[in-house]
């Protein structure tokens, strides 16, 4: 009888000691888990495809929870997933939504071809060969490497120039990396006014190669009430934080290189 009692007491004491130790260790090695990270992870598709540029959905969820990645950074999930993540993170979808924009308007009517480029139909291969098909050495090559990488099918090349469908774009930035001419930029979704040219040559030279190229005349900068436009190296640049999208610059631009709306 006493043997049973002794065993019960001993095991009971051991249990209490182990319990205390476990609680202590648990507190000591506690890892703070952001609840939002777990929720964001659940909202993501979970394919672990890596198209966002992160090592997988876990890494991406951590980045979103830490505020490093945008809620719309998952190119596969698109708008519905972004909406759910925004709800979790308490951010507004519209406030930081970004879309890609192609800074070139030099379509077939506005510039002409100087080379009969033949060979691989890929912008990167064209850029490497140096045989630019268009007169302008800066502009869109029109072979659609950006459209090829776009997971949303939001980019279409029409008339020799790529253009982004703002509604379909999720701002994943893959096209930005794909463009060998560095023409594509992620811009705020709200932004409506853009300089659609990157030609840094003098105005006289630009006029020779394109009818809608920025000639660096500074008319836009002079008339901008928000002082959002600067002209550097013969090229106008809009500061999107200051721009009010009033559209005055687009009206003033003699080359219609700036468009609004």
């Amino acid at each position: 009888m006493s043997a049973i009692l002794t065993a019960t007491v001993v095991i009971g004491i051991v249990g209490v000691i182990v319990g205390i130790a476990l609680v202590y260790i648990g507190n000591k090695f506690h890892v703070e888990v952001d609840q939002r990270e777990v929720e964001v992870r659940e909202a993501l598709p979970g394919n672990n495809c890596g198209a966002c540029g992160y090592a997988g959905c876990d890494a991406m969820a951590a980045a979103i929870a830490a505020g490093e990645a945008s809620a719309a950074a998952c190119p596969i999930g698109g708008a519905p997933v972004a909406e759910r993540i925004n709800a979790i993170m308490g951010t507004s979808a519209e406030a930081d939504r970004q879309t890609a924009f192609v800074h070139c308007n030099g379509s077939c009517e506005h510039t002409s071809t100087k080379n009969n480029y033949v060979g691989v139909r890929d912008c990167r291969a064209v850029a490497l060969s140096g045989m630019y098909p268009w007169d302008c050495d800066y502009g869109c090559l029109g072979f659609g490497s950006c459209a090829e990488v776009c997971p949303q099918g939001a980019i279409h090349v029409t008339n020799g120039v790529a253009a982004v469908d703002r509604e379909a774009c999720v701002g994943c930035g893959l096209c930005v990396k794909a463009c060998p001419k560095g023409l594509i930029e992620l811009v705020p979704y709200e932004q409506k006014t853009f300089v659609r040219c990157v030609n840094k040559d003098r105005g006289k030279d630009v006029k020779l190669v394109c009818t809608v190229g920025c000639i660096g005349c500074r008319l836009c900068a002079r008339d901008c009430e928000a002082e959002a436009i600067t002209v550097d190296k013969n090229l106008a640049k809009i500061n999107y934080e200051l721009c009010t999208n009033c559209g005055k610059c687009a009206e003033k631009c003699p080359q219609t290189a700036i468009t609004s709306g």
Binding site: G119, V120, D122, R124, S129
Partner: peptide, 13 residues
Amino acid sequence: RPLTQEFKAAKAE
């Protein structure tokens, strides 16, 4: 087929 050009582009890639 434009093989060499494809390889040149791929090597750059």
